[in-house]
């Protein structure tokens, strides 16, 4: 069995926000991440999906300690990293790196590729031949070592994303947090970068936290998947189970909303279209946070918060009425409507 690299327990991250009420303004808290627990094994990919604002980025940034968690524990390689001193944090940064969505915004236009990739080596005061290391890294991500002297604007989106990856790999991390790493890329280029990430993972035994809103990309890349809704993980399990037999109605609805590039499948499909938008995280719904949009919600859902528990398929789910394998939400919603 692979060893646990990262263990997160009860993680909470609150932000202070102000709401303007005419002349007065009210101080409020947003729970962007609300009591979240999960683990990542070395060499594995955990996918993180959920709608905009569900807390994926915030969660990633807490794990990296780019944000201070409000509560909870993050154990990385056996060491508690919440409350770590700045020295401890610096060492940690070698081992965990992040790749951002926007390859255009994440590189300084005035610095050469050489400077950009070598920067983490300098910050960490790593000795050795930096130009040589940069050449190696460029080759590793499928670029030419000659590219080191050029500037970011001379590269396409896919190439810039490769530069971002090379930079993240400079310090030989064991965990990469990939926050929408291919969302800004065209599909043909997206496929190039996804293949590269796959090869690097095998070669370097990297673990990934792969954040993306494209569910087919997440399915392709992830061993396990965590589905987030309004700051909570509502379902967690291995990738095939989540896709074949989603137990949480939200996972089910999310998957049925994803357009599949096959007209026959699309026309034959029965789809549950969720009504409305994600509610405000400032004042999340009581009980199960999904109850306002859930097609099978009952009274209990409005008052009692469902705890995470393991279900038939082996995945964990936070729902009072998880779907049995093989039962579709369309059928259940139909039954619920008929009995109402």
């Amino acid at each position: 069995m692979a060893d646990t690299l990262l263990q997160v327990e009860g993680l909470v991250k609150e932000f202070d926000v102000r709401r303007n009420l005419g002349i007065r303004s009210q101080k409020l808290k947003v729970q962007a991440v609300s009591n979240v627990s999960f683990s990542v094994d070395s060499g594995e990919t955990l996918g993180l999906v959920g709608e905009s604002g569900s807390g994926k980025t915030t969660l990633g940034r807490c794990v990296l300690r780019l944000l201070e968690p409000t509560a909870g524990s993050i154990v990385f390689k056996g060491q508690e990293i919440v409350g770590l001193s700045s020295d401890g944090l610096r060492a940690l940064r070698r081992d965990m790196q992040i790749v951002f969505q926007d390859p255009f915004a994440s590189l300084d236009p005035k610095r050469t590729v050489q400077a950009a990739i070598a920067e983490p080596l300098e910050i960490q005061r790593v000795g050795g031949d930096h130009p040589q290391r940069v050449r190696e890294l460029l080759e590793l991500v499928g670029l030419s070592p000659d590219h080191a002297r050029r500037y970011p604007h001379e590269f396409s989106g896919g190439q810039r994303q490769r530069i971002g990856i090379a930079r993240a790999l400079a310090l030989n991390p064991s965990l990469l947090i990939l926050d929408e790493p291919v969302s800004a890329l065209d599909v043909s280029i997206q496929a190039q970068v996804l293949n590269l990430l796959g090869e690097l993972q095998t070669e370097l035994n990297l673990a990934y936290m792969f954040i993306a809103h494209d569910l087919s990309v997440v399915r392709h890349t992830s061993d396990r998947i965590a589905v987030m809704y309004l700051g909570k993980i509502v379902e967690l399990g291995d990738s095939e189970t989540i896709y074949e037999n989603p137990a949480h109605p939200y996972t089910h609805a999310l998957l049925s909303a994803v357009p599949v590039p096959d007209p026959e499948v699309e026309r034959a499909r029965q789809r549950i279209v969720l009504t409305g938008d994600v509610p405000s995280p400032i004042n999340p719904p009581s009980g199960c946070r999904f109850h306002t949009r859930c097609p099978i919600a009952q009274d209990r859902c409005r008052t009692e918060e469902p705890a995470m528990r393991t279900v038939t398929g082996g995945q964990s789910v936070a729902c009072h009425f998880p779907l049995e394998p093989g039962v579709t939400l369309v059928e259940l919603a139909g039954r619920a409507a008929a009995s109402a």
Partner: peptide, 18 residues
């Protein structure tokens, strides 16, 4: 179409170049 992640496709087949 070959660039898209699909069931049973272990490796994507991207279009080379840009």
């Amino acid at each position: 179409m070959r660039s898209l992640p699909a069931l049973g496709r272990e490796r994507l087949e991207p279009i080379p170049g840009s």
